[in-house]
Amino acid sequence: MLYLDKVSYTYSPGTAMAMPALHEVSLEIPDGQFIGIIGHTGSGKSTLIQHLNGLVKPTGGVIYYNGRDIWDEDFSRKELRTKVGLVFQYPEHQLFETTVVKDVEFGPRNMKLENLEVQLRTFEALKTVGISDELYDASPFDLSGGQKRRVAIAGVLAMKPEVLVLDEPTAGLDPAGRDEILEAIFRIKRERNITVILVSHSMEDVARFVDRIIVMEHGSVKYDGSPKEVFRNYKELEEIGLAAPDVTYLTAMLRERGVGLPDVATTVEEAADMIERYCKH
């Protein structure tokens, strides 16, 4: 479990360029949750996730991993980085090996694991992200955008993290590539039951998959709850440069027009069920 206790972070503190990026953020992230983080550019989302595996040291507050302060002197942050795997934006830019398999093996090899274990983890990870074996010896650079990104995710997955953090994993992909990635993430969640934290600009994707949404604004947590609890505030979300899924607006408008739906919907499926039930009564 990850626990953030009043975590603050200021870039270049004590200088004229000082810029506060996080302000006393407290969060509890229990094992096995599927979390979406949303917020406009510059709201502090990326800074927040860089704290989770100790890439950045908070300028205030404490981060606990399984009850231990990750900035304690005898806490191994090197090990933490294998437990909390971070997939950066545009991770395909970080592919560098000559074959897909070698690229995925890089992480577990660095962990000084036995050869057999490295291979096993590599194949498992590639299978989970849906990369078929005829691509194992291909150069990562010959793959499609969606495939490259899945290989990059497999590289992190092969370290068997307990928490997987993905920073805008679908940015810049077409709908087919986006679905490939989301299906892979969903499979990871299902097969391994690890904690998954997804940073995204796509409200539709977030609404479809996660249990909990954290909304960041000006370096603080603005909302924290289920997709429905959060997207009910669609008017406020718009004021801070975000949005709710289109079906949320649609169901809200229907309710305003007197259609007796029980709540706003956050996915197409849910909206269809609600409207069907309403009309058949």
Binding site: P175, A176, D246, V247, L250, V268, A272, I275
Partner: peptide
């Protein structure tokens, strides 16, 4: 053609 349709269109199609 590996594309989507807008959510509202998708909802009407589903219904």
């Amino acid at each position: 053609h590996h594309l989507d349709v807008p959510q509202v269109t998708e909802l009407a199609y589903e219904l």
